[in-house]
Design a protein around this nucleic acid. Sequence first.
RNA 1: GCCUAGGUGGUGGAACUGGUAGACACGCAGGACUUAAAAUCCUGUUCCCGUUAAGGGAGUGCGGGUUCGAUUCCCGCCCUAGGUACCA
Length: 927
Amino acid sequence: MEYNHHSLEKKWQKFWSENGTFKIGETSDKPKYYVLDMFPYPSGAGLHVGHPLGYIASDILARYKRLKGYNVLHPMGYDSFGLPAEQYAIQTGQHPAITTEENITRYREQLDNIGFSFDWSREIRTSEPEYYKWTQWIFMLSFNAWYNVEADKAEPIKTLIERFEKTGTAAVKAVSDDDIRVFTADEWRGFSTSEQQRELLKYRLAYLKESTVNWCADLGTVLANDEVINGLSERGGFPVEQKKMMQWSMRIIAYADRLLKGLEQIDWPEPLVEMQRNWIGRSVGASVKFPLPQLNDHIEVFTTRLDTIYGVSFVVLAPEHDLVKTLTSEAQRKEVEAYIARTAKKSELDRMADTKTVSGAFTGSYAKHPLTGKDVEVWIADYVLASYGTGAVMAVPSGDQRDYLFAKHFDLPIIAISDTQDITEEADPNKEGRYINSELINGMTYEDAMSTLVKELEKLQLGKAKVNYRMRDAIFGRQRYWGEPVPVYFKDGLPYLIEESELPLLLPEVDKYLPTETGEPPLGRAENWRYQDQYEYELSTMPGWAGSSWYWFRYMDPQNAEAFASKESIDYWKSVDLYIGGSEHATGHLLYSRFWNKILKDLGYHNEEEPFKKLINQGMIQGRSSFVYRVLDVDGKGTNTYVSFGLKDDYNTMALHVDVNIVHNDVLDREKFIASRPEYSEAEFILEDGKYICGTEVEKMSKSKFNVVNPDDIIAAYGADTLRLYEMFLGPLEQAKPWNTNGIEGVYKFLRKVWRLFHDAEGNVALSDETPTKAEYKALHKIIKKVEEDVERFSFNTSISAFMICVNELTDLKCNKREILKDLIIVLNSYAPHITEELWMLMGNEVGAISYQKYPVFNPSYLVESEFAYPVSVNGKMKMNLSLALDLGQKEVEEIVLSNADVQRYLEGKIVKKMIFVKNKIINLVV
RNA sequence: GCCUAGGUGGUGGAACUGGUAGACACGCAGGACUUAAAAUCCUGUUCCCGUUAAGGGAGUGCGGGUUCGAUUCCCGCCCUAGGUACCA
């Protein structure tokens, strides 16, 4: 029988599905291993060959770990709330649920074709009420929680109320809004319910507050910071502006330090860890007050260089700063207002792009320097951002280049503060010298100056050490339809939770998926969208990241109606051992997931500080576009002649994208090209060596570039096993690489060779029960060792090369021994599950068992210890058992030369694992 | 600008803690089998010199260094990709 990948793969996929081969029970006595892929958003475009890369890697690992005796959780599901289905609904009127369902069906078909060992009985979809019930429940948990700084964890809100009742705000150290009231226990008890609720809202982890948000008018919704890239929306690339709105937020700032600290205990790629660090943006410094005696107020600034405080020659406020209005003098009012108007007109994007022009305006007012008491001018300028720190800076022209340029431009004083400073051309921020012109700290070093200044400012109550974060609290509401409803209603203008027993709060039906005439979100269109028929429900829905911030727990116990997952299953599965997905989620999903994981931990639902112990970013597979070159005539018009890539420089040509599916190894299938479009029907070609060679370029995979490759097409031609092997063979998992099928024949050929090992020339199964030779064992044991090493370090591409070597060796040895081949296919099973399952069956073994049963194949004692040699004695030159050396090195050894230093290391007669030969001489031994 | 990762044949890539650089595969060239094709198999394939061969020389982005020995470690520079940015 020939290797017929098509029927064979379909057969086994059906078998696995019908027999529930990969279904696992709740818990087990075996050690657990949880390997998770980032679940996909089911888009309308379906999967292209880039998507399964990570899934294939995780599937190999899952199957391998099962063979090693682990109970493996390897689930899949869909992040099925999201914007594209809603945009489609706006255009067509089709309910997003229907679009989503259709897309999921397509995804599932494509995934099934690849032969993954997912436990589909655990599938989840974030848009299903059974699932989002628990997303809403976690929101309620966060609403009912506050962050206790003393305990450094979140606690139920009732412990805060207890403190208020006993001691008022005096004994409370919490992460909260800035505008909290200070009150005694008596005052608290005197508050009305509304007053109490209003105050509690300032402490809740999920809270409602007037805040500056990223508003995207084209999408009709607010966006989180990570959904805005260079001032444009991540989805669609629409402009985003700043706007003040009442908005739901999550107090992620409370966890900033723990999110940073946690990065040290997880095994993640360095770039990703770095991205999260930068995103959180912790900077240690001080907050300093510059008094405004005339207003009985002060300007608060944040600085990381408190030591330069005597170099302050002016203070700069962001144009949006609250104090600007009151500080502006009559004389300066016109100028200041004109400046504010000018900056307001500039978009965020312009403001970022234009960082070279110095601009600003004097307010006409002065603030007191906190230490010298001298007057310093107060300016406004757009280089100070309202959204960072306090929106105000102390300007030290001698130490900060931006301040320096500003001072030069407006002719403000520049005060040198260090004896090593050179400020003739630019600012000099060095910390090496001794301070000058600095009263209190003259002559001191940096460290001494800092501690002196902090003490002095604290004494004066004009400043203190402070840690500032770049990260903002996460905006949680979206003015969209296709998301989880927020389980909140409003009474007296204040938010209250619905009862837990009333969950899930189902997404209501609406007539259109657009905002209402009054500009309210689409849920405003729902009829009678009120709690108990009288209180308005919240109209915004949750953001895309809500459903994905806890989904790994749901896989542990996906059908549970009583809890997001049972305590037993959480205790057993704990956290994800290996998480595979793209790095584009660095500052979104991966940060929010860590955040919610910590909330759930603090409130006692599990014990894991971090959800994903190890993480691997699979590299993006880019498209490899192909081009044909149309010859242009003298007028520059296109002709019907196409010139091959190598000859195109002799002509005036124009490059045209050509569908990569009619190009093989860069050679154009001319017949298919002619048939592809009417305008090509008369095409003529100028060939090189009888072929039309296409030019290529690496671009993102997209329809418009005709470079999308559907895995289904590859599977139809070569089979799923070839696709799996080939995607791994393409290069290191973590590296970005262009898709090309140039080498796929080699992988396909390899599988046919495997097949032939089991069959004779006539195509009949022909296996021998003879005892294998030493050479055969050696070939087998090399591959077992290699695969184990490679899988453990996620180097899948190298083990495929090793498989090829192994099979070539066995073919050369004409090996058809059961003893050898049985083990070979067990080892190969994780990579190519279909063909191995078939061969396993042809050997007469129990079907479906290969993927589960524990064989001793990956056990070290299973390997023959033939690869070791022992040094016998040493004396400048090493004598050793030369027959063993020859066996090991397979080369003729004339002499052994080692340096004296190396010789010393082997004096005690250690085992030699490896010998290094240079031209028939052993030059080193590895112990 | 800053942070991170990387730079190896015609191509994808291998070389794990410093030890024969280029495994394996593609492509290419030649050959076997075949009426022919497909399939399969064999030989060669880093570059340069040497007609062939024997042999010699150079070689992992560039320039230095450490070492008996460097793709690997150190210093300086160049380039590519990703992230990030008036962050005070």
